[in-house]
Structure formats: structure tokens, C-alpha cells
């Protein structure tokens, strides 16, 4: 494609979204007017960098079950926990209220189960008792979606066996451990007719016959017979299928993902605009989590010199989270429009 002004004009319109299907646990949508790299960034960030809650520490008081402590700890870690408004929770490693963990940065769940009957007893996620001292009223509740309201099975106990333990759930991202993933899968597809030849389909006799068309194939025009290959063609429509594990609503996952990318970019802008002054020691006082500077109260450290104005408003908008509608993004409507007078140069 040529770099004509028209191309820049269409770019200015920005991405557009069409939702084709949605439920409490998934959303399918079509993303267009963006390039492949942008769409892929959205996909990657949703999979790996959206913060959620998961059990991270387990203190075992008694375990007379047949399963090893580590085994049960691992199972507990994988239980999806409600993460609505996780922004209210601080990262334990950044928490300035405590050295280890506290009510600001963790949720405590206790499990006490003992089999007294003759039959094998199953211990379910619903048997976890969530401590009331927690950052908000949702965070840390085990996700229970089955009709009987049981949740996932943690262990099975025989007569006389007992399980008594305390779990500490913390906020984290899936880049550190997959248990923090908000999604089980993100479907990502473009060019269902393979017009761009990004895929080299394996076949025995005829690729068209052996590979069933995707469900999105009917949404785009099939290639014309004898049509010449368009060397300038780029993918234009991207079909996402975001499947939540239940800890966040599907729209929240996407909004959080967008926010994470914006924060990454903001960090780059911040570093490049006031970089050089003060040196590393002044700008940074230790390792921090990726979105720490966005979490309102937590922004007290020396992170924000010179970028305070945009982040100040961002903290106000960001704290109310993804529930909001309309133009209010974490950055406000035009985050960089009014930079001339106030602050970062």
C-alpha cells in the first residue's frame, strides 16, 4: 500500500468492533480497521497479562488424605476465583501496608473438611470459606457455575481423613503462572479463505476438499476463479473468540487487556519524555508490577514525576474500572491533547 494521505485518514477513524455472539462466559467479535500486529497484541495481552486472583500460598495444618500437600496446593491454585474489580487489590509485592500479605493485597480462604461417614467424601471448591476481610465483596469467591453449585473437586476423603488448610489468594498475571489466566482460550482467526496464503495447508489430493471451511468463511467473499494473487493485500478482519474461565466477565477481560497495553505505552512515553533527568535512582525505587502506577493510591512512590497530570486523571477514571460506558477510558478522552501547558514536556 502507498503512503497516501487517504490511508492516514482511514487510520484516524480507528478500530471498529462487531460482536457476533456473547454470553456470561464468552464473547465472539470481529475486529477491523487494525493491522495484524495490533490484533495480535490484543490477543497476547488478554492471554498473558490481564490481572486476576488465584490461590498462591497454602498453609497446610492437617492433611491425612491420600494426596500430597503439594498436589493439593497445586489443585487449589488452579481454582478460578472471582476477580471482579481486581484493581481494588494491590500486588503483594508492591503492597506498602505489609511485608508479606494483608487484607489490601490478598484474600484468605480456609478449608476444613473431614470425612466421618462410610462413603467417600468429595471436597469441593464451595467448601472453601472466604474471609470477610478483603479488598472488595467479589474478589476471591470461588467460581461456581455448575447447576448443583458445587464447584471444582479439590480432593476425595475416606472415613477418618481430614483436610485443614489456609489459602492465601493473591493478584497476579498469567505470564507468571497460568493459574492467573482470565481465559481458557482466545480464538483468533483471519482470512478464512486463505487468500493471503499465510497458511500452507497440508493435503493428500485437494486442499479445498480436505479442509472444511471455517464458520467465518461465509462472512467473506470467496476467491474468484482465476483471480491473480494480490501482493499488497493485508489481513483486515480478525475474528476473536474470547472464552472466560469465569473469574472475569468477558467484556471486562477485553477492557482490562486494552488498559494493560495503554499502560505499557504510557510507561514508554513517560520514559522517553522525562528520561535522562534524575537518573535511574530518582525515577525508580525498586521492582514494581506492571500496572502499579495506575492504581490510584499506590502511585505514591517516585514513579510519576512529570507525568503526574495524565496519570492523575487516569487514576480517577481507572479506579472505577471497566464497568463504565461511553468515552471514559482509563486515560480520559484525549489524554495527550492537553499536554502543552501542564507538566511533561
Amino acid at each position: 500500500m502507498d503512503y497516501d494521505p487517504m490511508a492516514m485518514d482511514t487510520e484516524a477513524e480507528g478500530p471498529s468492533v462487531k460482536i457476533s455472539d456473547a454470553s456470561a462466559h464468552h464473547v465472539n467479535f470481529e475486529l477491523s480497521s487494525v493491522d495484524l500486529a495490533f490484533a495480535n497484541t490484543i490477543r497476547r495481552v488478554i492471554m498473558a497479562e490481564v490481572p486476576t486472583m488465584a490461590i498462591d500460598l497454602v498453609e497446610v495444618e492437617a492433611n491425612t488424605s491420600v494426596l500430597a500437600d503439594e498436589f493439593i496446593s497445586h489443585r487449589l491454585g488452579l481454582i478460578p476465583l472471582n476477580s471482579k474489580n481486581v484493581d481494588d487489590v494491590a500486588y503483594s509485592r508492591d503492597c506498602d501496608q505489609c511485608d508479606n500479605y494483608c487484607e489490601q493485597c490478598s484474600v484468605t480462604l480456609t478449608l476444613h473438611a473431614r470425612c466421618t461417614g462410610d462413603e467417600i467424601m468429595k471436597v469441593y471448591a464451595r467448601d472453601l470459606v472466604v474471609d470477610s476481610q478483603r479488598p472488595n465483596n467479589w474478589v476471591g469467591n470461588p467460581v461456581i457455575t455448575d447447576p448443583d453449585g458445587l464447584g471444582t473437586v479439590i480432593a476425595k476423603l475416606r472415613k477418618g481423613q481430614e483436610l485443614r488448610l489456609k489459602c492465601i489468594a493473591k493478584k497476579g498475571i498469567a505470564k507468571e503462572h497460568a493459574k492467573w489466566a482470565p481465559v481458557s482460550a482466545v480464538g483468533f482467526e483471519y482470512d478464512p479463505h486463505n487468500k493471503l496464503k499465510h497458511i500452507d495447508l497440508w493435503f493428500e489430493k485437494d486442499a479445498a476438499e480436505e479442509w472444511p471451511p471455517s464458520k467465518y468463511a461465509s462472512w467473506e467473499d470467496p476467491p474468484q476463479e482465476g483471480e491473480a494473487f494480490d501482493y499488497d493485500a493485508v489481513p483486515e478482519k480478525f475474528y476473536f473468540e474470547v472464552e472466560s474461565v469465569g473469574n472475569l466477565d468477558p467484556d471486562a477481560i477485553i477492557q482490562q487487556g486494552i488498559k494493560v497495553v495503554q499502560e505499557k505505552l504510557a510507561a514508554v512515553i513517560k520514559d522517553l519524555t522525562d528520561g535522562g533527568s534524575g537518573g535511574a535512582a530518582a525515577d525508580f525505587d525498586g521492582p514494581r508490577s506492571p500496572d502499579m502506577n495506575m492504581n490510584g493510591g499506590a502511585a505514591a512512590s517516585g514513579w510519576d514525576q512529570g507525568y503526574t497530570t495524565p496519570f492523575g486523571t487516569a487514576a480517577a477514571g481507572g479506579s472505577s474500572g471497566w464497568g463504565q460506558t461511553g468515552a471514559a477510558t482509563p486515560y480520559g478522552a484525549t489524554p495527550y491533547g492537553q499536554n502543552g501547558s501542564n507538566g511533561w514536556n
Binding site: T325, T329, Y331
Partner: peptide
């Protein structure tokens, strides 16, 4: 450096648009 800054700012704007578009569509759907 200027080019990179412009790029970052334009991407932030694009993401804001995406966020708004998605919210709009999702609310409509609901």
C-alpha cells in the same frame, strides 16, 4: 524519538477508541 512518541500516543488513542467501540457494541448487545 519523536516518531516513536507519536506512534505511542496514536496507539493509545486507537486503544481508547477500541475500548469505546467495544463498550458500545457490548452494551447494545446486552
Amino acid at each position: 524519538k519523536e516518531a516513536l512518541l507519536n506512534c505511542c500516543k496514536s496507539l493509545v488513542t486507537d486503544l481508547a477508541i477500541l475500548s469505546r467501540e467495544f463498550t458500545k457494541e457490548y452494551e447494545l448487545r446486552k
